[in-house]
């Protein structure tokens, strides 16, 4: 199997270690997105959260999204790492990195990738609230 562009990680994402995968002599632009765990959602105080993935399909779907991005935008490389397991407030939950010859394609592809990941990849968030309750998020 070739080096995957999309990965799930049970340990903290090291952005400095991920970014060199985007290096390309023709690239003049790098855009990235970091999704962080915030302390509130929908008016409720959040203490921590868990991410659960259907790993086999999440990896395939994530890889498909990055392949589609490379066909759809004029980019040189695109990568994404998503955390699974238990995360604390402020933790990095997802990282997207894109390199391209010019900034427009880098920004556009980065935005498109994170939107598609959120919409399509089988990963679920279980929020643990300050009042002790918890709940899986299944957006409409």
């Amino acid at each position: 199997m070739t080096d995957p562009r999309f990965r799930l990680s049970e340990t903290p994402i090291d952005v400095a270690a991920e970014r060199p995968a985007l290096d390309h002599a023709a690239a003049g632009a790098y855009a990235s997105f970091e999704g962080w765990v915030r302390d509130h959602n929908d008016g409720r105080a959040v203490h921590r959260l868990d991410y659960q993935a259907y790993a086999a399909l999440a990896l395939a779907e994530g890889e498909a999204i990055l392949e589609e991005a490379r066909a759809r935008f004029r980019v040189r490389e695109a990568r994404c790492v998503h955390r699974v397991g238990s995360l604390a407030i402020g933790d990095l939950a997802v990282w997207v990195g894109v390199s391209a010859d010019h900034r427009g394609a880098a920004f556009d592809a980065c935005r498109w990738i994170i939107d598609e990941v959120k919409r399509r990849v089988p990963i679920w968030k279980n929020e643990h609230y300050a009042d002790g309750e918890s709940g899986w998020l299944h957006p409409e």
Binding site: A93, V94, V117, K118
Partner: peptide
């Protein structure tokens, strides 16, 4: 078989 509820990653 897996029935996948609406996802909430990211």
């Amino acid at each position: 078989i897996v029935f996948l509820p609406p996802v909430s990653g990211g």
